[in-house]
Amino acid sequence: MQPRQLATKKPFEAVVQEQGATVLRVCRAVLGVHDADDAWSDTFLAALQSYPALPAGANVQAWLVTIAHRKCVDHLRAGNRRALPTDNPPEQSSRLGIPGGGHPELLDAVAHLPPKQRQAVAYHYIAGMPYKDIAELLGVTPEAARRSGADGVKALRAALAPKPVLAHSSPKGDSK
């Protein structure tokens, strides 16, 4: 017999409201904006399916990031396999402009990181996951996970640092 209170779990809607944005940022960091929507949908659909089995006191965000990681890996693999355009493109309207607008250089910078660095940066810095958990997800040692995160951040900093040559620095303050 368990006291009822231990068994209570938030409605899944609250989980989507609280974690939806973080999971989407994680998916975008790992996959890029284009595939992130599909990965997000796969993640929350799978999470909804297995939500009743999640222990009541569990860390919901870590659980979601773990699912998102697997779904993103599926997408990365599918992307690698895909030499030709897909037969059935996802049914969705295109959004105008680049989500997050005005910083294509940043998208680019993230996209150019090796996948492990992108993952480590996303899971640690966006989702706040400890490196020992990230290590488990990535199948590497905690030290290696930490190094991936640090290298990723270093590369991002380098890519995004104000250039010594000022010719391309105008986009920064444009939209203000």
Binding site: V16, G20, A21, L24, R25, R28, A29, D37, W40, S41, F44, L45, L48, Q92, R95, P99, G100, G101, G102, H103, L106, L107, V110, V121, Y125, I126, V153, L156, R157, L160
Partner: peptide, 24 residues
Amino acid sequence: EVNQLLTPTFGDVEPALASLHARL
């Protein structure tokens, strides 16, 4: 700091979230 670094790209997720919720 890193979040600040990433936010310009990944921060603006709200418009996408509404349609993702409907799809879910």
